[in-house]
C-alpha cells in the first residue's frame, strides 16, 4: 500500500506493507537516527514526533502515520544547525553512549513546544518514557532547563 507521510517537513510517498512498523519504515528510508532497542515501547529510543506529539515508533503501525507529519531528531536540528536542546545536552554532559539521546531530545522538544517554562517535575513526566543507562537523568533535566531558558531569552531558535 502507498502512504504519504511528511517526514522532517518533506512529503514522502512510501510503499509499505499493511503491517509495517513505523520505526522499520523510517530506518529503511534512511532515517537511521531513529533508534530501535526494546521494540516493546518501554525504552523511548525510537521516539519520534507525530504531529508534534511524542510516540513510540516501534509500536506504531506505519499505515497509521499516513497523512500525518513525523519529526525525527534530525528534523529538530543537525550538526550544522543544532537546536538549543542539542547544544544544552552537550554542554551539560547529558550524553555518554548517545544511543538514547535522539529519543530524549525528541521528547524534550515536544515538551518545550507546549510548555516553554517547565518545572523539573514537568520534565520528569514528559521524559518518563526515555530510559538512559549511562548518564542518569539529572544532567538531562539540567539540559532541558537550560535549553528552555535559552529559548525563552531568544538565544537560539
Amino acid at each position: 500500500m502507498r502512504v504519504s507521510i511528511t517526514i522532517n517537513a518533506v512529503q514522502c510517498l512510501l510503499e509499505i506493507e499493511p503491517g509495517d512498523i513505523l520505526l522499520d519504515v523510517l530506518r529503511r528510508e534512511g532515517y537511521v537516527e531513529v533508534k530501535g532497542d526494546c521494540h516493546t515501547g518501554d525504552c523511548g529510543a525510537c521516539t519520534v514526533l507525530l504531529d508534534g506529539k511524542p510516540v513510540a515508533s516501534c509500536l506504531m503501525l506505519a499505515a497509521k502515520a499516513d497523512g500525518h507529519a513525523v519529526t525525527t531528531v534530525r528534523g529538530i536540528g543537525d550538526q550544522r544547525h543544532p537546536h538549543a536542546l542539542q547544544k544544552a545536552f552537550v554542554h551539560n554532559g547529558a550524553i555518554q553512549c548517545g544511543y538514547c539521546i535522539p529519543g530524549a531530545i525528541t521528547s524534550a522538544k515536544a515538551l518545550l513546544d507546549e510548555n516553554p517554562e517547565p518545572t523539573r517535575e514537568d520534565i520528569r513526566l514528559a521524559m518518563d518514557g526515555n530510559y538512559c543507562r549511562c548518564t542518569g537523568y539529572e544532567q538531562q533535566i539540567e539540559a532541558v532547563l537550560e535549553a528552555a531558558r535559552e529559548l525563552r531569552e531568544g538565544g537560539f531558535r
Binding site: G44, T47, V55, A56, M60, S107, L125, D128, G129
Partner: peptide
C-alpha cells in the same frame, strides 16, 4: 504507562 504511550 509513559508519555509516548499516553499519546498512542
Amino acid at each position: 504507562a509513559h508519555n509516548n504511550l499516553r499519546n498512542m
